[in-house]
Computed example of a mutant assay.
Amino acid sequence: MKFKAIKGHLGIGTEGKDATYVEAAGWGKYRWWRYVLGLVVIFFVGLVVGGIAVPRVAFLLGGQEGLAAVSRLDYAALGPVGGFVAVTAIFPFFLAGILIAVTLVHQRHPRTLVTAREKISWRRVGHGFVAWFVPFWLIAGLGQYLFYPDTFSFNFNFDFATFALFVPLALVFTAIQTTTEELFFRGYIVQGVSLIWSNRVFLALVPAVIFALAHLFNPEASAGGWLTVFFNYFLVPGLVWTAVSLIDGTTELAIGAHFANNIGGSLLMGVAGNAVNAPTLFTVSKFHATYTALSMLVVVPVFLAIAYKVFKRDEASEPVSQSDRIGRR
């Protein structure tokens, strides 16, 4: 199957050459040391500033007991809603660090982490959401019930008032979390390593490896072993969503797909012992690594078929502005 990348124009008076979001790495100021400084900024704001703020969030949620719970990493002690907020509260700080690094260190628009166009196509983001949500939650979710009915249960003691409170929080914090990870792994990291070598295989492998390593300490990784690490972190979303972004020339599909993947786990079906135990509608008592891994072999082709056959990609938008286009070291 041959794909034609969605591209933005490099600019007026440049022989109409198109540019992908990867090539936007050469806009603004882009010397290697700026990417090192950018990483320092991102991790300082995310880990240091965020690390100071999160305990205070826990204190607001649960007082001294909440503060003590976070210090011993016992987020369950804050309750399903409070624990979710405490776990995800650090991502706004990582997002702020990314925006600061791109805007001040590289002096280009943060939008260039997503696309080389004048505007982000939220329609294409929606395509990514639907293309992933439908096959993943039908196969991984409904399939879990069909193959392992004894481990699949509806939360009969479900508190609808708590769930109603949780839904808007889950939508906002999950959107921040997944978008932050996409902007960092498939945006900033891919753009940075593209200055070393622009080979697409290399560009796909580097963020996939880093993404997998960053999630090694998740409870699911410990429960599922190498199968989970390879299929659920390295292959998807690490490798597949990066390859799709490189093919498309934007990270729009990946942003939508990542949100679809995580919001389902926050609202629809949770696995006991996950990093975040949200008040989901259904709960799976045992994580089946083999089934989850095999389901990815079906989900990915269906995702690609929906994304590229069912949905039509947008026409190229307006050319990027002169201020974004000029490369300065």
Rank of each mutant, 00 (worst) to 15 (best):
G66W: 12
V114M: 14
E118S: 14
P80R: 04
N274E: 15
L239E: 03
A24R: 08
T103I: 07
Q144V: 15
V193L: 03
I326M: 08
L39F: 12
A272E: 15
I12S: 05
R328Q: 13
S285G: 14
L67W: 13
N232I: 15
T292G: 00
H9T: 07
K119P: 14
A208Q: 07
A293M: 09
T20G: 10
N157G: 12
F303E: 05
L73W: 13
F156P: 04
T151W: 09
V302C: 10
G128M: 09
A24P: 01
K119W: 10
E220V: 09
Q322P: 13
G238C: 09
L146M: 08
T20E: 12
A19H: 02
I189Y: 02
T174E: 01
I52C: 11
Y21W: 09
Q144T: 13
K17I: 04
Y35H: 08
L61M: 02
T251A: 15
N277G: 14
N274S: 12
G63K: 06
A293Y: 06
P55D: 02
G26T: 02
E15M: 08
D314E: 14
A208V: 14
V87Q: 10
L246D: 11
L47S: 12
P110L: 13
I176P: 01
L165T: 09
Q107D: 07
Y188S: 00
A254G: 08
T228H: 11
L227A: 14
L203G: 00
L216V: 07
Q144S: 09
E315G: 10
Q177E: 11
V300P: 02
G224E: 12
S266P: 10
L39P: 06
V193W: 04
L95I: 10
Y233H: 12
R186N: 02
L213K: 00
I210E: 03
F303Q: 06
F303G: 04
E220M: 01
I42A: 03
L73A: 08
M1F: 13
A221G: 07
P149N: 02
Y21C: 11
G270S: 08
V300H: 01
Q144R: 03
I189K: 01
Q107T: 06
S71R: 10
A161P: 09
V298Q: 00
M269D: 06
D314L: 07
N261I: 15
V172M: 03
F311K: 01
P149M: 14
G82S: 03
F211I: 12
A19E: 03
A305I: 11
L73D: 05
V41F: 13
L246P: 01
L138H: 05
G51K: 04
T14M: 03
W241P: 13
Y291I: 05
F259K: 15
L205P: 03
A221N: 03
G46T: 02
G62R: 06
T112A: 13
S222F: 14
K309T: 06
G224N: 12
I42P: 00
P110T: 06
F259I: 15
T179Q: 07
G273E: 13
L146E: 04
A243L: 15
A316H: 08
R325K: 09
V40K: 01
F43D: 04
S321F: 10
I263F: 03
G82T: 05
L95R: 07
L60V: 04
R111K: 14
V193S: 00
A307T: 05
V190G: 01
H106D: 10
T280M: 07
A212V: 10
D314T: 02
F94H: 05
G13Y: 01
W27P: 00
P279I: 06
W32Q: 06
I42V: 07
D150Y: 03
Y35Q: 09
G270K: 09
